[in-house]
Amino acid sequence: MKETDLYLPVKTLLISQGFKVKAEIKDIDILGAKDDFLCAVELKTKLSIKLIYQAIDRQKIVDQVYIAIPRSSIKMRSAAYKNLVYLLKRLEIGLIFVDDDVAQVVLEASIYNMEKSRARYKKRKQQTLKEFNLRKYSKNTGGTRDKRITRYKEQVIDIAIYLINHESASPKEIKEDTQILKTSSILQKNYDGYFERVSRGIYKVKDDKIEEIKKLKNIVKEGI
């Protein structure tokens, strides 16, 4: 499909919405006018950052901006599509899909409500703030793809260090010293495979994991 193949379906769509339509006005692919209200549509066969830039530039002089692309150019259920829709919403740019000879608005060019968005993700913000406040160390490097040290990982390390220093202990003893409330759960679930139960209610660090734990403790301490 060529960009020119997108023109007639999009023109027909705008006319059905009451717009008078003309093409290539001041480098705008399609411009619709309804009294003094202007709607611009940029036509492209595939997504690109240049297309987004063009749409943003059109917002300087028109009331609404859409981008129109072939439906086949992006997978509807893909992460890329989800991210695109979110980006366009934030930028207040609409999206039109053209499938064969039919154009359809899949995202309206409307004002983005930032307060509503923040309210929707309030729980995620609280979780993020909680993780920030609970984190004891600052080992992680921003931008790295290495495995991150989370608050949960910090707790695992602290429990393991206690067990190394005391050879073995019960969850109650560890919790009283470390103040880690989830001690029992961490020991029982043992996601990292560091611990083993030596008798009923008594745990230790596996012998082959001791050096690894010590290295991890030194690493997180260096990042304080």
Rank of each mutant, 00 (worst) to 15 (best):
M1F: 06
M1V: 10
D5W: 03
D5Q: 05
D5Y: 07
L6S: 12
P9Y: 13
L13E: 09
Q17E: 13
Q17V: 01
F19G: 07
F19T: 08
K20M: 10
I25F: 14
D27T: 11
I28W: 05
K34E: 07
K34M: 09
D35H: 02
D35W: 03
D36T: 14
L38R: 06
C39H: 09
V41E: 01
V41A: 07
L43S: 05
K46A: 01
S48G: 00
L51A: 01
L51P: 06
Y53V: 03
A55I: 08
K60A: 15
S73T: 13
M76H: 10
R77F: 11
A80W: 00
N83Q: 13
Y86D: 15
L87H: 03
L95I: 02
V98R: 14
V102P: 03
V102C: 09
Q104Y: 03
V106D: 09
S110V: 12
N113H: 04
M114S: 05
S117W: 09
S117G: 01
A119S: 04
R120M: 05
K125S: 04
E131Q: 15
N133K: 14
R135Y: 01
Y137V: 03
S138P: 00
K139S: 09
K139R: 11
G142A: 15
G143S: 14
T144G: 13
T144V: 07
R145C: 04
R148V: 12
I149A: 02
T150N: 11
R151D: 10
Y152I: 13
Q155V: 02
I159R: 01
A160T: 09
A169N: 02
I174P: 02
E176C: 04
E176Y: 09
D177Y: 11
T178D: 07
Q179E: 14
T183F: 01
S184E: 15
K189C: 08
K189A: 02
N190W: 09
G193H: 01
Y194C: 03
F195C: 01
F195W: 00
D207M: 01
K209D: 00
I210Y: 07
E211F: 08
E211L: 12
E212C: 00
I213N: 07
K214V: 14
K215N: 10
K217M: 14
I224K: 10
